[in-house]
């Protein structure tokens, strides 16, 4: 009964199917079955946020979902969000602001930030910090990350509403 099972899902727009043991988490499946090592594991218990991916459109901890549970689901990782340009503005802002050091938390931070920005508008610093409440970063002290997300949100809002460009 603990034998491998077939799982079919869409990852970064590409249908994949594999045989997988039920105990394999989605995180390990992405990292080692599919080679998508942009998703990281820092605690394997949902406390650090390094493993966040989009599952059917919302961020979840891929360490807290078994791959077999994602059968039929749509999964997007940092690789997919990079390739389709969804997080290009965030990546640029993170780079310019140096909102990362070792980079291990960064994919999770980007997944969280992307979901926050999807809601539209320009979140306040407190709202950004609240959204990041489950994403641990040991290197930056967070401020640069907050700055970068705020900048990306402003840039996005500015692009959507040209009259708001006055902001420095």
């Amino acid at each position: 009964m603990t034998a491998t099972m077939s799982v079919a899902l869409t990852v970064n727009g590409i249908p994949v199917s594999r045989m997988v043991a039920p105990r394999v988490t989605l995180a390990d499946f992405l990292r080692f079955d599919l080679g998508l090592t942009g998703t990281h594991t820092g605690c394997e218990m949902g406390a650090c946020g390094a493993c966040l991916v989009r599952l059917d459109g919302v961020p979840v901890h891929s360490c807290l979902v078994f791959a077999v549970q994602a059968d039929g689901a749509v999964v997007e990782t940092v690789e997919g969000l990079s390739e389709n340009g969804a997080i290009a503005g965030l990546q640029q802002a993170f780079h310019e602001r140096n909102a990362l050091q070792c980079g291990f938390c960064t994919p999770g931070m980007l997944v969280t930030a992307h979901a926050l920005l999807e809601k539209g508008g320009v979140p306040s610093r407190d709202e950004i910090r609240d959204a990041l409440s489950g994403n641990y970063c040991r290197c930056t002290g967070y401020e640069a990350i907050v700055d970068a997300i705020a900048a990306a949100a402003r840039a996005r809002a500015g692009a959507e509403a040209p009259h708001a460009e006055a902001e420095a």
Binding site: L36, V78, S82, F94, F104, T106, L110
Partner: peptide, 10 residues
């Protein structure tokens, strides 16, 4: 840092 931002860290 660009590599790390794209999930291409090693």
């Amino acid at each position: 840092a660009k590599r790390l931002l794209a999930g291409r860290g090693k």
